[in-house]
Nucleic acid binder design. Structure first.
Length: 109
DNA sequence: CTCTTGACTGAGG
DNA sequence: GCCTCAGCCAAGA
């Protein structure tokens, strides 16, 4: 594929796919890793197109570990279910022990 | 080109 | 720690 095909959105998908099982990261962390630290919002915006792709969007939350994007999933608790299925404790859209499951691409990679 | 939108974030009170 | 405000920037109309 051409480099030009790797748009901001596509890069977001690539990084999202790199998130390990049972871990989560933030929009800002991904943005920073892509060199667009100020474009955290675009990361989330990009995830709109993650549907139909192999992107584990449920592993991407905001910096507080809050499932702000759960409304973009089918059910009302699908995102939380997926996370809990990976061993991540989630209570009321809030990830517990965030530090333990947090994964920062700009650090881990 | 301009204006709006948004799954965010950091700073200030 | 919580709430509010403003800046950020790419995409779509």
């Amino acid at each position: 594929m051409k480099l030009e095909t790797l748009n901001f959105f596509d890069k977001v998908y690539e990084v999202a796919k790199l998130v390990p099982y049972g871990r989560v990261t933030s929009y800002g962390a991904i943005a920073k890793y892509l060199g667009a630290a100020r474009s955290a919002r675009m990361v989330g915006y990009a995830m709109n197109g993650s549907g139909g792709k192999d992107v584990p969007a449920h592993r991407v939350v905001n910096r507080k570990g809050l499932l702000t994007g759960k409304h973009h999933f089918e059910g009302t608790n699908l995102m939380q279910q997926l996370l809990e299925n990976e061993g991540i404790e989630v209570i009321d859209n809030q990830i517990q022990n965030l530090k333990l499951v947090y994964w920062d691409p700009s650090v881990e990679l």
